[in-house]
Amino acid sequence: MDIVEYKRIVITLRPSLLTVARNITGNNEDAEDVVQDVCLKIWHQRDRFGQYKNVEAYSITMVKNLSIDRIRNRRSSVGEVALLTHESEDWLPDSILEEKEESEAIRSIIGMLPPLQQRILQMKDIEGYETDEITHITGIAAEAVRNNLSRARKRVRELYGIYYHIQETAT
């Protein structure tokens, strides 16, 4: 699947996926986030996508599961804070170690970063902003942006390194 085919599939599926997500989460913001996550998963799994006979049914199942997860996460926000502030050097949750998909593991690792680091990493590495643009948008000093970005990247490297070596050893 190339990016053009991907775009065609997403444009076709998006309305029905949004409807399902809205019905479960009860609000547009969460529904948009869930649908975006599912669409990103579709892209990351594009090499294996041909094996699914009914892409829409498969995508709707993912939307349902993620929407339910989102509702659960809302209820357990205290645990989430604990997860974000965890500072152990060699700590990696079982849920990530059990992940079969590398992209899912990396996404989970990024999700474990403190919110500011997470946001700066997203803006720089995924949305493609330059450091001075992030400074203007967030109002954070350039040096602080660089420090947070550096910490975020090193933390992702460290945790992904643990995941990578465990996976390598297992295979």
């Binding site: 997403v10 444009i11 990103l40 892209w43 990351h44 990396i106 995924i126 493609g128 992904y160 990578y164």
Partner: peptide, 22 residues
């Protein structure tokens, strides 16, 4: 070990650009 990391970032940014456009 960096291959998956940078491939993830490349894929993610490419797909997010398309999703934002849509």
């Amino acid at each position: 070990e960096y291959v998956s990391l940078f491939r993830f970032l490349e894929n993610e940014s490419e797909a997010k650009a398309v999703l934002n456009e849509i």
